[in-house]
């Protein structure tokens, strides 16, 4: 019982800590990695709450795909192609 409540406290504290770190990180990449970690911790919390459906969705969409999308956006931030190349890309 004590171990369980300790685990819950650690999870809850960890999520808040990660949220603060992710928001205050100086580099975008660090922020993204911390955000993905936050998603994984949130998954564990959903498991502790016995909400397995939400846990699977959080792990797959919240941590996995959102992380991939954020990293792709971050890559776009790094390269900053000039307007000319972007137009020749035909990106819509």
């Amino acid at each position: 019982m004590i171990i369980e409540s300790m685990m819950d406290t650690l999870l809850a504290g960890g999520v808040i800590l990660l949220a603060c770190l992710s928001l205050s990180a100086r580099q975008v990449f660090t922020s993204i990695v911390l955000y993905v970690c936050l998603g994984l911790l949130a998954t564990l919390i959903w498991v502790r709450l016995n909400a397995w459906d939400v846990a699977i969705a959080e792990a797959a969409i919240g941590a996995g795909l959102t992380g991939a999308l954020l990293l792709a956006a971050w890559r776009q931030l790094c390269f900053e192609p000039s307007d000319q190349t972007r137009e020749s890309n035909g990106v819509s």
């Binding site: 969409i61 795909l65 991939a68 999308l69 792709a72 956006a73 890559r75 776009q76 790094c78 390269f79 192609p81 190349t85 972007r86 020749s88 890309n89 035909g90 990106v91």
Partner: peptide, 20 residues
């Protein structure tokens, strides 16, 4: 749709020769 979202975002950062 999810994969399309990722691919479009990724292709924005790709060098021009790689697309289409």
């Amino acid at each position: 749709i999810l994969l399309l979202l990722f691919a479009q975002l990724k292709s924005l950062a790709d060098p021009p020769g790689e697309m289409h």
